[in-house]
């Protein structure tokens, strides 16, 4: 008997006496009473709680906000994924075309991306490797990640986020910069992922 058959046979024998049960989903799944302005406010507050930098700007100020943030980091040649809206592409941007090697990505100082969805209650941005986000390594190897979130992409909670995401795409849920608490429970931001996360919310 193969291990597959063996395991399945053991399972069949084990669960014969297990009673059927019912799953009740009476937890919160709707957006709740928050309007768009409140969602933006909650999202910004929760992202900031992770010690990430948050800006909330109007559509016409996005480019300037991105430029100022990159300048503050001293980043003159930031990486951008394909499909990033042209008005967000900063001066001196480097495209991942042809794809950079891992070593080249490691040498890049920072990256600017959009996202697929953002979750207010948990301060989370989710990337699905779609247009304006790029393959997963782009937001992993550079030490600085600037993510632009459109207000319309912000949902209230985790259930609303899960509902709009496509599981067939590789997803990266990001809540603040990389962190560890492995040494005497002291939180240190930045271990292997980007040590700085900056989020620009477009009203």
């Amino acid at each position: 008997m193969s291990d597959r058959e063996l395991i399945l046979a053991r399972i069949r024998a084990a669960v014969t006496s297990a009673p059927p049960n019912e799953i009740v989903r009476d937890y919160r799944t709707s957006a709740g009473p928050l309007d768009r302005a409140e969602l933006i406010e909650l999202f910004a507050e929760r992202v900031a709680d992770y010690r990430a930098v948050v800006h909330v700007t109007g559509e016409d100020e996005v480019a300037a906000t991105i430029a100022a943030a990159l300048a503050a980091q001293g980043l003159t040649r930031p990486l951008v994924p394909g499909g990033l809206p042209v008005e967000w592409v900063p001066e001196g941007a480097v495209a991942d075309d042809p794809p950079l090697s891992d070593a080249e990505l490691d040498a890049v100082g920072g990256v600017v991306t959009g996202c697929a969805v953002a979750i207010a209650e948990t301060g989370t941005i989710v990337l699905d490797a779609g247009p304006g986000q790029g393959r997963r390594a782009l937001t992993l190897l550079p030490d600085y990640h600037l993510c632009v979130v459109r207000a319309g992409q912000i949902v209230a909670g985790v259930p609303q986020g899960v509902a709009v995401l496509d599981p067939s795409r590789p997803l990266t849920w990001i809540s603040g910069p990389s962190a560890t608490s492995d040494i005497e429970l002291n939180r240190v931001e930045g271990v292997h992922g980007p040590r700085t996360l900056e989020v620009v919310v477009v009203r």
Binding site: R46, D49, Y50, I119, E121, T122, G123, T124, R136, P167, S168, R169, P170, L171, T172, W173, I174, S175, G176, P177, S178, A179, G193
Partner: peptide, 12 residues
């Protein structure tokens, strides 16, 4: 004890 952990990856 966080609202969300820094990174969650899903792949298929």
């Amino acid at each position: 004890g966080e609202r969300m952990n820094p990174y969650t990856s899903t792949w298929t």
